[in-house]
């Protein structure tokens, strides 16, 4: 069951303060092994919208601002999403006439603002990209990697 995530202000947020980063296919990226690589990886994620799952089943959606060695995450303009409770699920199954055992439900959400998600409670981290920008990512990715290489040299 994949819940839809309505984005209240999808465009303004990804271009936060004009710092747009080139798009890459994260699945294709190798797991960072060296420290400069790791730092660069985290740097590229800054100001992107992350979806952070927590141990209690909630999900937090906000703009990534800061992390540390314990994987504590600081998210700005965060919304909290909560999966439907059992009672609600039951109600939905009775009203929706499930086909193939599936029901569609919205998560309840509310605005929280600036939050810290302590690393110990983080179960899942997802990064959001625009599909439209992803299409041209084959070239973009190369450029991106070149840029990273440059940065490493400088630093």
């Amino acid at each position: 069951m994949q819940p839809p995530f309505p984005s209240p202000f999808p465009l303004s947020r990804n271009n936060h303060r004009g710092r747009s980063k080139a798009i890459m296919n994260y699945d294709a990226l190798p797991t960072p092994s060296s420290k400069p690589e790791a730092t660069d990886f985290l740097q590229t994620l800054l100001n992107k919208n992350l979806r952070v799952g927590t141990t209690d089943g909630r999900m937090f959606w906000g703009s990534f601002k800061c992390t540390d060695s314990d994987c504590n995450l600081v998210l700005q303009h965060t919304y909290e999403y909560r999966p439907p409770s059992l009672a609600q699920l039951e109600a939905a199954t009775t009203t929706q006439n499930p086909q193939k055992g599936k029901v569609v439900m919205d998560m309840t959400s509310r605005y929280l603002g600036l939050v810290v998600v302590p690393g110990q409670y983080v179960t899942k981290i997802q990064v959001e990209e625009f599909a439209s920008q992803l299409k041209s990512s084959a070239q973009g990715q190369q450029q991106q990697q070149q840029q990273i290489a440059k940065k490493v040299e400088i630093s």
């Binding site: 797991t31 960072p32 790791a38 730092t39 625009f130």
Partner: peptide, 20 residues
């Protein structure tokens, strides 16, 4: 959602943060 793609980066993120 439509037009937005999300990648699971849990492992990579943890690994990267772990090097700090």
């Amino acid at each position: 959602s439509e037009g937005i793609v999300a990648f699971d980066i849990t492992k990579k993120f943890r690994a990267a943060a772990g090097t700090l």
